[in-house]
């Protein structure tokens, strides 16, 4: 081999390496549009998960969903994460849907010790309630469960998991887990001092903060789907917490899930989400409840107020 050929080859290798290095060091701006709320810690957790999946250094900017959300998207943004079903007609034509998706699941996040007290693989609402009761007995002045009941998504999820309340039936003295319907269950849990009454005024931010502050044993969170399979992924942000499907009375382990489709600008390198959740590794046999954006939005706009009033007023 001639020397000149070797030199040319080396130059080409170096040039290619430099090009790849430049791509790696570039920070891609990703805008996430959703009806969900995130505290910064959780959003950072989501970002890190997303970055791992997309294999790019990216900043994740969260935009609460609005009807004219397209206008608020920064032109510098390279990627978009839009909920499935979210209207995309008005998006800039620069953005194209990639066919890659990123999923969040709604899980109960609880202290590791608490989950051990739940003792078991069969997660039921009763076991959850017993564990809360046990905790309440230990620390009487602390409400072990704090929920973001002012969050429409949370209340919707609870309604989806625990069912709607039957009207014109009075609240019995039974434990909350024996109550029927999400409103009664929640109301009764508050009466029993297991669910912090402030939950009715709490959004996702507050509930997350209460949990993170240690003032609650458990709460619910939207987290990347992979966290369901491996709670250790959340350990960086949630330390000793573990993530499990929110229990229902039947132990069906239904998990509400939202799918975010990745959009990207045409002129940027095509992105691909490499990590796929390994359902087989999940210790629970869960049933995903894929949320429909339009349906959820309809519920939030038409039924949330009534449901919330019932929760506040106790008008069952």
């Amino acid at each position: 081999m001639k020397l000149s050929s070797i030199i040319i080859a080396i130059v080409l290798i170096i040039a290619n390496f430099n090009s790849g290095f430049a791509q790696e060091t570039g920070i891609s701006r990703v805008v996430m549009v959703s009806t969900l709320d995130f505290v910064p810690e959780i959003l950072e957790m989501v970002r890190k998960n997303f970055v791992r999946k997309i294999a790019k250094n990216a900043s994740l900017v969260f935009h609460p969903f609005e009807k004219e959300f397209q206008q608020n998207i920064d032109a510098r943004s390279s990627y978009l994460l839009l909920e499935e079903g979210m209207p995309s007609e008005q998006l800039s034509r620069d953005f194209v849907k990639t066919g890659n998706s990123f999923r969040l699941v709604w899980l109960l996040v609880a202290r590791h010790q608490f989950l051990e007290e739940m003792n078991g693989e069969n997660l039921t609402l009763e076991k959850f309630g017993q564990a809360l009761l046990a905790r309440k007995k230990k620390v009487s002045h602390v409400y072990p469960w704090f929920e973001s009941l002012y969050s429409k998504n949370t209340l919707l999820n609870l309604f989806l998991l625990l069912g709607t309340a039957e009207k014109n039936r009075s609240l019995s003295d039974k434990p909350f887990w024996e109550q029927k319907g999400a409103i009664r269950i929640l109301y009764r849990a508050m009466e029993e001092g297991l669910l912090n009454p402030l939950s009715v005024e709490a959004d996702q931010l507050l509930s997350t903060n209460v949990f993170l502050a240690g003032d609650s044993i458990c709460t619910t969170l939207w987290v990347p789907e992979e966290f369901l399979y491996d709670s250790n992924l959340a350990r960086e942000s949630l330390e000793d917490a573990r993530l499990i499907p929110f229990p229902d009375q039947n132990g069906s382990l239904a998990v509400p899930r939202k799918t975010f489709w990745l959009w990207q600008k045409k002129n940027v390198e095509k992105a691909e989400l490499f990590v796929s959740p390994d359902l087989a590794s999940c210790s629970y046999k869960v049933k995903f409840l894929d949320r429909k954006f339009s349906q959820d939005l309809d519920w939030m706009e038409s039924e949330f107020s009534q449901a919330y009033d019932m929760l506040i007023m106790g008008d069952f």
């Binding site: 409400y143 209460v210 003032d215």
Partner: peptide, 10 residues
Amino acid sequence: NYSTYGLLNL
């Protein structure tokens, strides 16, 4: 609220 509802850490 935090005082009332025992959110002492918060």
